[in-house]
Design a protein around this nucleic acid. Structure first.
Lengths: 350, 350
DNA sequence: ACTGTCGTTTAACGCGTGTTAATAACCTCT
DNA sequence: AGAGGTTATTAACACGCGTTAAACGACAGT
């Protein structure tokens, strides 16, 4: 019906007050300045007219957009098979809604990082951002350090001073591999979750190495493979591994997504888990408990990570000095069915 | 360094032209109005100063935000385990980036729909929106029909005239069940993907009924269960089904996510797929090809759906009249390993 | 009745850009 | 060289709201 746009002026007119008063009513913080009855009048008028404060005008005048950005560092092709993402988005949406903020999602191309980050923040599209799985080789990060833009990394980059929220990837991976060693395995392969340009991938790989070293097991580089986030890459890498070098009784796969593919490759090779090969995953995505066999894996509390990131970012936005600029979320090994004690039978099997 | 905000005025000054000229240069469509050399000068000045046009000011002046919204109808709890979502987001991000648009993600609570939709569009946070898996019982949709807001549904709602992009859920589900019937199955159970308030769920259930009717098989309501998007609900429903009513040789599970849980329940019951029970899924999420057994399922081209939705919305935004306001994307039955011809052995097994 | 005080309300300016209508520059042709 | 026509540029207003400083009104005390 009412095709005209409703502005605060209209509301003011109907309520019999000035436009400023309307503005005061709608900026909650200084409520004390307005008399309750006046505020009530304004609210009613706004309601009657169907008034919604214009976000752009507000952003322009106040110089804040009340929107934060979630920056993804992979291409849509890989985003599409990232089962960790929904958990992150779910967690963020929850908080962002409570806080009346908007959530903008963006994908940044390699090589475009600096420009994209600057564009997003300088243009005030967003007040601050959360960078999901940052990369070592991201030149934009140092740019962000210099300019003072509110920003939180989901994942840690060594020698980078930006605030971050992360798990201890290295220790968690070590915990997983330690478990395999405890079970008697000595020949343990590894498939990473991604290329080592991603900090989580290289850190998890380090954890794998740590565990072997601590147990005095020589590291066999040919037992290490790099996957690419998704099940398909896990399948490929596992298949290769089985063909080229079948001398291992256990494997640490640094992502449940990838592990699913690995499982399929093992099945296709006529072997089974954990009878022939023990497998420990990483992430504990919701589906991991339903894989066949149910995955023993490192639980990464995605929701908590999302929430902490969001809170940290909001503190930075408000100018509060956070208790700590770096937050580590504890992980936990979830023991299910995909790993077991090594058996003699294995040796004959392979 | 340059802590002052750079405005088009600064650029104009450096380039020795007026602010309007700068504005013309940055609004690509009317490029012809500016002499190439002038444009070049402006571009260089902008580059040197690190100028990024302010999004809010631009949105305010032009009355368009160059941002579209992706509206989710479920709670974060269910969003977190939606493996279809990454594909949608990946697809949208791809196009949105090409078109220089922003993508805002929002979750709408039941009961808040009208308010949320109005708020988002009237406040010009977004120019238009895509509503993911709309619900029958969403009163906001009729509101959207009346007011003229660019909007595309990902999923069809009967008696709703809003533009939509969808697959033919009913026919696709029938195709899946037809296949089971072809394989000789007569006692076929069904677990839906969600509550029937979601259009896709009720439509897929109808397709299941259609197939049985067409084959003159009586419909046994006790063989029908409703799941809730995720594997956990699939597990629960399947377990119930196996305990209460084990007289079926095949099952149609209207979502791969849910199917994963169902598979786990079947395994836990000591049965196997497809030896004891044949299963056909729906969606063909990327992981489906790696489940155990590899899922026979209906391929839903998520990326294409995302792209078409986005394109349709953009046409609406530009005021072009689209070739068609409703787009149906064809699906396809992907035959893998989870369904097979019925065997006599089955009868003894159950 | 007048002054002073405190708590409300308002006028007016600024945020940075898009865009129209008018001006200026330039070129061609007689 | 001047008129007419085309193109390049600019001045000025609009967009809707936040916010500061000033105006206003009520009220108490002398």
């Amino acid at each position: 019906m009412n095709n005209k746009r409703v502005t605060s002026f209209d509301v003011a007119e109907l309520a019999g007050v000035s436009r400023s008063t309307v503005s005061f009513v709608f900026s909650e913080d200084k409520q004390s300045r307005i008399r309750p009855e006046t505020r009530q009048k304004v609210r009613e008028a706004a309601e009657k007219l169907g008034y919604y404060p214009n976000a752009s005008a507000r952003a322009l005048a106040s110089n804040q957009s009340n929107t934060i950005g979630l920056i993804m560092t992979r291409s849509p092709r890989y985003i599409a098979s990232d089962n960790f993402l929904p958990q992150i988005i779910g967690g963020l949406l929850d908080i962002v809604k409570q806080e009346q903020l908007g959530l903008l999602i963006e994908w940044v191309e390699p090589g475009q990082q600096i420009q994209t980050y600057l564009q997003l923040t300088r243009a005030k599209h967003i007040d601050g951002m959360i960078i999901l799985t940052p990369r070592f080789d991201d030149p934009g990060l140092t740019a962000l350090e210099q300019i003072d833009i509110p920003c939180v990394l989901m994942g840690q980059i060594p020698e980078c001073n930006l605030p971050y929220v992360d798990i201890d990837n290295r220790a968690s991976a070590k915990m997983a591999v330690d478990y395999l060693i405890e079970l008697g395995h000595r020949q343990i392969a590894c498939i990473t979750n991604a290329a080592t340009a991603y900090s989580s991938a290289s850190q998890r790989l380090e954890g794998y190495r740590d565990a072997l070293k601590a147990a005095d097991i020589a590291i066999d580089e040919s037992l290490i493979r790099m996957a690419d986030f998704d099940a398909a890459s896990g399948y490929t890498q596992m298949k290769d591994l089985l063909i080229e070098y079948p001398r291992f009784s256990a494997i640490f796969v640094a992502s449940d997504n990838v592990a699913l593919g690995a499982l399929a490759a093992i099945h296709d090779a006529g072997l089974s888990v954990p009878e022939d090969i023990s497998l420990v995953g990483f992430d504990d995505i919701p589906e991991a408990a339903f894989y066949y066999p149910k995955l023993t894996t490192v639980h990464t509390p995605a929701k908590e990570i999302a929430e902490e990131s969001c809170h940290l970012l909001m503190q930075l936005l408000k100018g509060e000095i956070p208790y700590s600029r770096t937050i580590n979320i504890p992980t936990q090994l979830i023991i299910r069915d995909s790993a077991r004690m090594i058996e003699r039978s294995h040796i004959t099997t392979n």
